[in-house]
């Protein structure tokens, strides 16, 4: 009877693992980074379930065997200080598990913080994704177009998102492409993603940013490079240019639908990187981005040799 809930917990875990197969966004990856992360998640769920099962099994065994009502009346529990062997085992086994996970985590960290292995060497598509209350602005500097609240991306090509915010800290997240990263007002963070297959996806701000936070999401569509190029051409032919005045209007707090512009806001409202970074004091030299890549241009103030 008392073991019921223990069984319940175990059952629940099993059900949890089984349900998680196809529909759940994070476990249904559409890109290499999300795939890496889903692998880590499955691996850790697997090993961790074993630990939970072992603990539950010992607990059930102890409760069944040493419950007061089942023991002879004169049974008096012994005084046991501890046992070297047992205590060594319960130290060594967790250390081994943690050591294994440490190796996994170091490898996967470096994977998700770099251009995906499969697409190395390709020219990445750079998108400046900035948030304002409560919208997302996507600037494609090479294509010289900008969208609001929707994102079109080519498949089979590395994507480099440069993230920053025009307000509170937000977090750029497309679960099926990969994990999130913060967008902040005084520096640019870089998120490396890629899409393996065409399709529609949900993207959102995952970090609470005030009243309009719940609706602060955006639509993502991955398409072939050809379709993507067609779309860019079409935008250039049909969309209005983005003026500074228009952009200031867009920044005002509120929600907007999906908008498209030619040109980006970057020329008149540059991203907080390099000399525009919030903490650029002129002498520290170029800031390393999240990769540690020193890819920014050395700017004019950089005269010190340190």
């Amino acid at each position: 009877m008392k073991t019921k809930w223990a069984l319940f917990v175990v059952h629940f875990l099993i059900a949890f693992v089984l349900i998680g197969c196809d529909k759940i966004a994070v476990l249904d990856p559409k890109g290499p980074q999300a795939q890496t992360q889903a692998n880590v998640i499955w691996l850790s769920i697997g090993i961790m379930s074993v630990i939970v099962v072992v603990v539950c099994a010992i607990l059930v065994f102890v409760l069944v065997k040493y419950r007061d009502s089942k023991l002879p009346k004169d049974y008096e529990p012994p005084y046991i200080e501890g046992n070297r062997v047992v205590e060594t085992i319960i130290v060594i086994v967790p250390i081994l598990i943690v050591a294994f996970f440490s190796v996994v985590t170091i490898i996967t960290n470096n994977k998700v913080e770099a251009t995906p292995q499969a697409y190395k060497g390709q020219d990445p598509l750079i998108v400046y994704a900035s948030s304002s209350n409560w919208k997302w602005h996507f600037s494609y500097p090479e294509e010289n177009i900008e969208t609001v609240n929707y994102l079109y991306i080519p498949t089979n090509r590395p994507l480099e998102f440069k993230l920053y915010s025009f307000g509170p800290i937000t977090s750029f997240w497309i679960p099926q492409l990969g994990g999130q990263k913060y967008a902040m007002s005084d520096m640019v963070t870089t998120l490396h993603l890629a899409a393996d297959e065409a399709g529609e996806m949900m993207g959102r701000n995952a970090n609470f940013s005030g009243v309009g936070f719940a609706e602060n999401s955006f639509y993502v569509e991955a398409m072939s490079q050809d379709d993507f190029d067609d779309w860019v051409t079409e935008v250039k032919e049909t969309a209005e240019p983005l003026t500074e005045e228009k952009f200031q209007q867009l920044l005002k707090p509120g929600h907007l639908g999906q908008l498209t512009f030619t040109g980006t806001h970057l020329p008149f409202s540059p991203a907080p990187e390099g000399e525009h970074a919030g903490h650029n004091h002129g002498k520290d030299g170029p800031k390393a981005d999240t990769n540690g890549n020193q890819e920014h241009d050395v700017h004019e103030h950089d005269t010190s040799t340190s």
Partner: peptide, 24 residues
């Protein structure tokens, strides 16, 4: 058992590559 589940999910969250998906 319940704290063990909480603890092991903590280890899952600790793996930062995967944490990008759990965070927030």
């Amino acid at each position: 058992p319940l704290f063990t589940i909480g603890g092991v999910t903590g280890v899952m969250l600790a793996m930062s590559a995967a944490d990008y998906q759990y965070h927030n």
